[in-house]
Design a protein around this nucleic acid. Structure first.
Lengths: 149, 149
DNA sequence: AATAATACTTGCATTTTACAAGTATTATTC
DNA sequence: GAATAATACTTGTAAAATGCAAGTATTATT
């Protein structure tokens, strides 16, 4: 008889975090289902922002304690990694890991949806049109360029 | 001189809800960036659950007040619509609108990611394999079947 | 007529988020 | 070399969101 085992919790910053179920959607939301995590990932993915101060300066104005908390959680869950800044000893540099880079298609589809159904910045229309011409090619290209950072 | 106008707020249940920016990711998160909204959408998209009681019975155990709140918000934002139950006068039936159906690719990519990087239910692996064989075909088929509900 | 089911609402405790201020380390300016 | 500024945080507290238990109104069933 086969027994299927699921990890239903994980320790993050010494705190036991429960996964609500083994559903892939639910599990993903347990990790990045909040108003801020994907914005940090967005900055790392589509802009050259990669320091604490960079994220703070983003348009949406994340609070400092929330930013520190989310950076720690994203690092714990293996989506981002922290490195020393070459040249600036005081600065840390954050990068997307492969797990983080693999969120590119998720972010792309969210952009498509928003662009189609909400009033967002006009650049999104051009972006969507461009990506839709060669979705796979764009993803591959972006993935490669993110790996090299 | 061209003036670009962005709607930076919306009225939901008589409350003024602010969009944090015109960024498509940020705007999407303002609408469904929480731990519960996408689970309701998941139920409507991938199962035959479509009533208040159905959603309550889902594995993740949403609280009744949160469910009522999210259903109202999702209806306000045009992602779901409420209808009379044929036969049961007491029951309401919720359906995905076209705007909601257009979230299919977002949910699919989230499932792909979770399946690849987290320990989730094994059905996700088979689902991912199946969908990846003909992504566009699957989306079209699911979209059509959801429209007919 | 009484009981049960459905879709909520209400009240309150707990948790999360927002905002302002403070701290420790390093960099820069005078 | 001392003072000021910059960076990446932490801390305290108020406000908002969430979770839980209980209650309510309408309809269905016994």
């Amino acid at each position: 008889m086969q027994v299927l085992f699921f990890c239903t919790f994980v320790f993050v910053k010494k705190k036991k975090i429960a996964f609500r179920s083994a559903c892939p959607i639910s599990t993903a939301l347990d990790i990045f289902g909040d108003k801020w995590s994907l914005l940090i990932i967005r900055d790392l993915m589509f802009t050259d922002k990669n320091t604490y101060g960079d994220f703070l300066s983003s348009e949406e104005k994340i609070a400092t304690n929330i930013l520190a908390d989310r950076l720690a959680l994203l690092e714990c869950s293996g989506i981002i990694s922290k490195h020393k800044h070459p040249g600036h000893k005081l600065k840390g540099v954050y990068k997307l890991t492969q797990k983080g880079i693999d969120l590119v298609p998720v972010l792309i589809e969210i952009i498509f949806w928003s662009q189609q159904h909400e009033q967002v910045h006009p650049y999104a229309a051009g972006f969507a049109k461009m990506v839709k011409k060669d979705r796979e090619g764009f993803i591959k290209q972006l993935t490669e360029s993110l790996k090299k950072r």
